[in-house]
Design a protein around this nucleic acid. Structure first.
Length: 629
RNA sequence: GCCCACGUAGCUCAGUCGGUAGAGCAUCUCCAUGGUAAGGAGAGGGUCAUCGGUUCGAUUCCGAUCGUGGGCUCCA
């Protein structure tokens, strides 16, 4: 019953957000259809923000908070018909929400920004006042500010109510702010987007104007530059530039086509994955993409996850579905005969492609898709074996993530308070097994109190990429329901059937998403073992074509993925193109090398290396491939 | 799904206040005997996302659809 919704990426970076940091207990949003891991959800609280945790510190928080007020001041002046909602600082800047019939146009943003500059020039002081709820209610009622009235109503009876005024604009606000608008020097409006009031799609849509602000113009410029840099690493851009994958309107949104280069990258990842799993006692299985609805009735998917499953199709009068998960099939394999405790644990591993309905607005390159391949495994074991099994999974995960040069953080997600199934004994036993395994592995972990799925506790792992963003990929979950639903047993030493313990685990999560994340992590500069093309042979001139071909053959026979650039181009152009294609090694050969039986290698981004005999170069690259370094 | 924006050659983008379109790169051809990040010349290539509407005429205006992008509590 594992839901790896999160592995297709409900949120790329949630944990790095301000909210994620303030609320160390990132709770899991618990809509019934999307249990498992997804966006951390805010815990309602009216206590002030912990400014020390704001990236950039309290000073920046004040600055941006004031910038939001200046924005609202400008907007209410230019568009008197707007109603204001809220406008907090966010990690990357600030925003303010407005209700207005007409959409804000880019031209409006320019006008607003110009007006903001006038407000800054006017150097309006921020005046603070502390009154009562009743006083303010009257004021906001008169102004018809229904959103502010809502915020006001959230403030506990008798608590102090604070307001800030600058120029004509008075806002219910807990501060803090700058002394005056004149202190706001470097700011910029960035974009406008729709945002539901209070984040609920059942509410009306507001217009949110985003901006950013810094203490100095230099920092603002740097920020803009950083955004441009990260845009260059965008997997959608690199995916096209490096010819890795495509998506086609004719096929459908969120459905990935792996091109030969992307396919090779994936193949190498799969090969690595298979090797390591086989080494560790997993067995590979393959299961169908379709199944009779009966299966999903038994598993409970139809009951709980119907809205992420595609609609049924008629096969010989029977309803069938495309599978959204692999687990039920793995249980079918387990249940195909009786099992003795002696043969446990059984570890079934599959790179299983599943299809799930994702709302059109959330699709995103390879990172949020409708068809994806899970590196899915299910471990069937006895309760006594569970802890060791989890330890083994953690070990494999650690090995795998380090090969991709990720650091990561583990979260132990415990029983949800409101809704969960299973007995206290089951929960505490399973949770303790996860905890013990984490501690035996000496992994630092945080407890995500109440963050477990309703059916089981789990360990979620977030990896940190080169840009400092966090992504949830690996997960290990105990399943307290599927063995019951399917009646999965083993015969114990006592000759009696016992319910088997089932662990779900994914390490990459979804291949599509993992590759997308990895493209951005690596900036498309893949290590030699993963690079689709490892070596580009570059003849210095046409006289060397034959020697180039011979050297290419030699490398190919040595297991190296090599291409030869025989275009009618000058060497400089070939080198440039190979560099742009981010091919790790270029090998230049000309008459000189042909004479000496050597090659003149060149490492991407580093330039020329010492000429070496062909065999020595082959050995060097083979070692790099073997070590996956 | 919802709000906003966008969809012109393989890619990045111009352009048309309504009279069926251009550049650079890429591709192809030819020339060039070239040594570590772009040699030169020429050619081909577009139902201007799709379908409807308005119009003498639509790539351009309007609508729908599809797709893409930015967002959709980081809470007064």
């Amino acid at each position: 019953m594992l839901d790896k919704q999160g592995v297709t990426g409900s949120s790329p970076v949630s944990p790095t957000t301000f909210a994620g940091r303030i609320r160390t207990t990132a709770r899991t949003a618990g809509t019934p259809a999307h249990p498992g891991f997804s966006m951390p959800q805010a815990t309602p609280s009216m206590t002030g923000p912990d400014l020390s945790r704001y990236p950039g510190g309290e000073a920046l928080y004040r600055l941006r908070h004031s910038a939001a007020h200046v924005l609202a001041t400008a907007v209410t002046e230019l568009f008197p018909d707007v109603k204001v909602a809220g406008g907090p600082p966010i990690d990357s800047g600030f925003y303010y929400d407005f209700a207005r019939e007409q959409p804000f146009t880019p031209a409006d943003l320019e006008r607003i920004e110009a007006r903001m500059r006038e407000i800054v020039a006017a150097n309006q002081p921020f005046e603070f006042s502390e009154t009562s709820r009743e006083t303010e209610r009257g004021r906001f009622e008169k102004a018809g500010e229904k959103y502010k009235l809502h915020f006001l109503s959230q403030i506990p009876e008798g608590a102090k109510v604070t307001c800030y005024r600058n120029g004509p604009f008075l806002d219910l606000c807990r501060g803090p702010h700058l002394a005056s608008t004149g202190e706001l020097k470097a700011f910029k409006l960035t974009h406008v987007a729709g945002a539901y009031w209070l984040g609920s799609e059942r509410n009306e849509m507001l217009q949110r104007i985003y901006g950013t602000a810094f203490a100095t113009a230099e920092e603002l410029d740097e920020h803009v530059l950083r955004i441009e840099e990260s845009l260059k690493r965008d997997h959608r851009r690199l995916g096209r530039e490096l010819d890795l994958y495509s998506v086609h309107e004719e096929v459908g949104a969120g459905l990935i086509h792996w091109h030969p280069r992307g396919g090779m990258l994936r193949h190498m990842m799969e090969q690595f994955w298979k090797e390591e799993h086989l080494k560790r006692g997993y067995q590979l299985v393959y299961t169908p993409h379709l199944a009779s609805e009966k299966l999903f009735e038994i598993s409970g998917h139809l009951e709980n996850y119907a809205d992420l499953m595609y609609s049924s199709m008629d096969i010989d009068g029977q309803p069938y579905r495309v599978k959204p998960m692999n687990c039920p099939m793995h249980v079918m394999i387990y249940n195909s005969r009786k099992h003795s405790y002696r043969e446990l644990p059984l570890r079934f591993a599959e790179l299983g492609t599943v299809y799930r309905y994702e709302r059109s607005g959330v699709l995103h390159g390879m990172e949020r898709v409708r068809g994806f391949t899970q590196d899915d495994s299910h471990i069937f074991c006895t309760p006594e074996q569970m802890e060791d099994e989890v330890l083994g999974v953690l070990d494999l995960m650690d090995y795998l993530l380090k090969k991709f040069k990720y650091e990561y953080t583990c979260y132990l997600a415990t029983r949800p308070k409101d809704k969960s199934i299973g007995s206290d004994e089951e929960w505490s036993f399973a949770t303790q097994a996860l905890r013990n395994a984490l501690e035996r592995h000496r992994l630092a972990y945080e407890v995500d109190e109440g963050g477990g799925a309703f059916y089981a506790p789990k360990i979620d792992v977030r990896l940190r990429d080169a840009l400092g963003r966090e992504w949830q990929c690996p997960t290990i979950q105990v399943d307290l329901t599927l063995p019951k639903r399917f009646g999965a047993f083993y015969t114990g030493p006592d000759g009696v059937d016992h319910e088997v313990v089932m662990l779900h685990r994914a390490l990459y999560g979804s291949l599509e998403r993992f590759v997308g994340i990895y493209i951005e992590h690596s900036g498309g500069e893949f290590p030699v073992w993963l690079a689709p093309t490892q070596v580009m042979m570059i003849p210095a001139n046409p006289k060397a074509y034959e020697y180039a071909a011979d050297t290419a053959r030699l490398l190919k026979e040595g297991g190296v993925r090599v291409e030869t650039d025989l275009r009618d181009e000058k060497m400089g152009a070939k080198i440039r193109d190979a560099e742009l294609q981010k091919i790790p090694y270029m090998v230049v050969v000309g008459p000189r090398e042909a004479e000496a039986g050597t090659v003149a290698p060149r490492r991407k981004g580093e330039g020329q290396l010492e000429p070496v005999p062909r065999a020595a170069f082959l050995e060097r690259i083979q070692r790099e491939i073997r070590e996956r370094s």
